[in-house]
Structures are given as C-alpha cells and as structure tokens.
C-alpha cells in the first residue's frame, strides 16, 4: 500500500465554532493505482489531499505514505516527503512566476535530485510545450499553464501524484485533453494518483472513486470498464 489513512479526523475552528471537516476516514491506495475523491464543496476533499501531502496535520488517526507515518515526521521530514515522494498539481496552477516554462518544468525534479534531461525532453514534447520553453507563466493560456504544472510534477517521477481539481479552471474540451494527457503520463511513470474533482465524469476515468459527504466517506466505487 502506498497510502493508508486510518481513522483520520480533522476539524477547524471558525467564527461560528468548531467545524468537523473530516471524521474517521479510512482509505488506502495501492502503488500504481488511481483514486478520485468527489463530493460537494466543503465535504473535506481538499483537506484530505493536504493531509496526505503532509501540508497539514490530522487531529486524530494515522496517515502512512510510502511506509512513512506522517504524524511522526517533523517539519523537515514532511518537506522531504513532499520533495521526494509526492507531486502536487493544483487548480490555480501555482507556477513560479519569476521562472521560465523550462525552469518551472525542471524545478521540482532538480529539487528532488532526479532531473533527467531525456525524460524532461520527452515530457515537454508530449505536453506540447516545446515551443513555449522560454516564456513566462503569465504569457500562457490556462490550459498551457496547467500542462506546465503537470509536467513539473511528473518530471520528478514522484511515487504519488496528488491533484486538486486540476482541470477546474479550464473549459470542458481543454480540461478533457489535459486530463487524458495526465492520466496517460501518470500511467507511463508508474505513479499513483489521488485526485480531487467535482466531476463524476472525470472521476469515472480513475480506478476507484470515493465520494465524501460532510467529512465522511459516503460511497466507494470501482471503475467499470
């Protein structure tokens, strides 16, 4: 098992009082497999993703990623986990505005010490970014930016790709194209994918789907071919 969550709960303190975002969540993800998290806004999907990435701490329960229990890691340990094991793709792209497309693509792989020029070149071509390498993020369309974000994550060949609404900012046609490309590249790298999405249609393309409602697992479904 690459990812295991056992009885994980998370709450936030808000102006209205305590808000239970996740309650007693148990789930797991095998290496090389993909899992979609769906649910209404506020159901806890993104929070779950952030917990798995080691960006936030659970209030209770255990999260294990690639055999490491995240709760036992300090700030530095969690940073190492994010750098070497996890790759993140966000809805807002979150590219580095001061770096060119080429530098953005290579950034995470170089940070993880896994930069591979050949793989980077192939990836760039597959993503259709080879003509845009010297541009800056703000000079790209939304679809192009998201392709750079995906390329940045996959260039490092992480064991686990965490994607939070990766096509949420794109129109349907562009979103579908980006999605297809991402799934194919994830399969090619052998990474596991945990993706948050509102779209049941996109979720249907992944191996398994878990639907959250008010911080609890409401439904689990396997992909039917």
């Amino acid at each position: 098992m690459l990812v295991v969550l056992e009885d994980v709960s998370k709450s936030y303190q808000t102006a209205e009082g305590r808000l239970d975002v996740l309650q007693s969540i148990d789930l797991s993800l095998d290496a090389g497999r993909s899992l979609a998290l769906t649910g209404e806004s506020g159901s806890g999907k993104s929070t779950l993703l952030h917990l798995v990435a080691g960006l936030d701490h659970p209030d209770a329960g255990r999260i294990t990623v690639d055999g490491q229990e995240i709760g036992g890691l300090d700030d530095k340990g969690r940073a190492t986990l994010r750098r070497s094991t996890v790759g993140l793709v966000f809805q807002q792209f979150n590219l580095i505005p001061s770096l060119t497309v080429a530098a953005n693509l290579a950034f995470h792989a170089r940070l993880a010490g896994r930069f591979d020029a050949d793989w980077q070149q192939r990836l760039t071509k597959r993503l259709g970014l080879d003509q845009l390498l010297t541009r800056y993020p703000e000079q790209l369309s939304g679809g192009q930016q998201q392709r750079v974000a995906i390329g940045r994550t996959l260039a490092a060949r992480p064991k686990l790709v965490l994607a939070d609404e990766p096509t949420g900012n794109l129109d349907e046609a562009t979103g579908d194209a980006v999605m297809a490309l991402m799934l194919s590249l994830v399969a090619e790298t052998g990474s596991s994918l945990l993706m948050v999405t509102h779209s049941r249609r996109l979720a249907g393309q992944l191996d398994r789907r878990i639907h959250l409602r008010s911080g609890r697992i409401d439904q689990t479904a396997e992909r039917t071919e």
């Binding site: 986990l81 750098r83 993140l88 995470h108 993880a112």
Partner: peptide, 16 residues
C-alpha cells in the same frame, strides 16, 4: 505567501 506557498509545497521547510 502566494509566491512562497508553492515552493513550500514542493518540499522546502518554513525555516528554509
């Protein structure tokens, strides 16, 4: 924060 958060998410500690 919007410029630093992605770097943090990619594996740098807040101390760094």
């Amino acid at each position: 924060l919007p410029q630093l958060a992605p770097i943090w998410a990619m594996g740098l500690t807040r101390r760094q």
